[in-house]
Design a protein around this nucleic acid. Structure first.
Length: 272
DNA sequence: TGCCAGGCCGAAA
DNA sequence: TTTCGGCATGGC
């Protein structure tokens, strides 16, 4: 079924190719195909919004939550005009949204991302899903679920070797084992503060400040108390100190998202 | 060939 | 507490 979502604050390229997610593919017709849990979505941009195509009404609802459609971006961006930094940020990338991704997939994905580049990150995750996930559709060249923690925890380093993830295999297995046996409950993080969630995630080998921050932002919408000296803040500072340098490349989107989320929480919505 | 990538670990100082 | 070498792999 199709669902039309009207908004001028959701740009698919800006959002899905910004580096916060790794499993979306652009089709020849310009639409995007993605999977989250067992839900498959085709989404395409239209003049004043997007059109979602999924199997069921319940799936559509889950995708709307994934795209953070419960947040009034139009109003927030309008309010950003009062702040020069925010005005610039929202002017340049007003279509960026911070997705609400599945925590385990986000955790493993950003463990894989460390000391790595985006094309290779995507390749490793693709091999992970095709090797150990479940194929739930033949469409779009095949769609595989992201393997769950128990499945990954049962694997040996040798079995994960074909992923060519290198030293990160040890980290993937530690995360999978801790989630599978309950030493880490990803559900509990929803109720934690940023600081609690960060300390909790860092009990996993291979999760440091940066990986924890990405998981907390892209799965839980939790940001740190401003300011911080982790890498992403340095990016934001550089990004906005002397205009908007082109050289920031892939960092631009993530910096934008981070700043956006931070100020969104500080800017109370006006009551009608 | 050498360097680097969306870090982190662990040992040494 | 801070610093720094090492780490798998692949693209440039």
């Amino acid at each position: 079924m199709e669902y039309y979502y009207k908004t001028d604050c959701l740009d698919l390229r800006q959002t899905l190719e910004s580096g916060q997610c790794f499993r979306w593919r652009r089709c020849e017709d310009g639409s995007y195909v993605g999977i989250s849990g067992r839900d498959i979505l085709n989404i395409r941009q239209v003049n004043d919004g997007v059109i979602l195509t999924a199997d069921s009404e319940s799936s559509i609802q889950r995708w709307l939550a994934y795209f953070d459609c419960g947040t009034d971006y139009e109003t927030i961006i309008r309010q950003f005009a009062a702040d020069e930094t925010l005005r610039l940020a929202s002017q340049e990338n007003r279509g960026i949204r911070i997705l609400r991704q599945e925590p385990f997939e986000t955790l493993i994905s950003f463990i894989i991302s460390q000391n790595n580049n985006i094309p290779r990150i995507i390749g490793i995750i693709e091999r992970l899903c095709e090797s150990f996930g479940e194929k739930i559709s033949d469409k779009y060249g095949g769609m595989w679920t992201f393997p769950d923690a128990k499945t990954l925890a049962a694997l040996s380093p040798e079995e994960l070797a074909p992923l060519r993830a290198g030293f990160r295999v040890r980290y993937i297995l530690d995360a999978a084992n801790k989630v599978a046996d309950g030493r880490v409950s990803l559900d509990e993080i929803y109720d934690m503060s940023y600081d609690e969630g960060k300390a909790y995630l860092k009990t996993i080998t291979g999760v440091g400040d940066k990986v924890a921050d990405c998981v907390l932002l892209f799965a839980y919408h939790k940001t740190e108390a401003f300011p911080s000296d982790v890498w992403i803040k340095r990016v934001v500072a550089e990004y906005y100190s002397d205009g908007l340098p082109e050289c920031m490349g892939d960092y631009k989107g993530i910096a934008q998202q981070y700043l956006f989320e931070y100020f969104r929480k500080r800017t109370p919505l006006k009551q009608n």
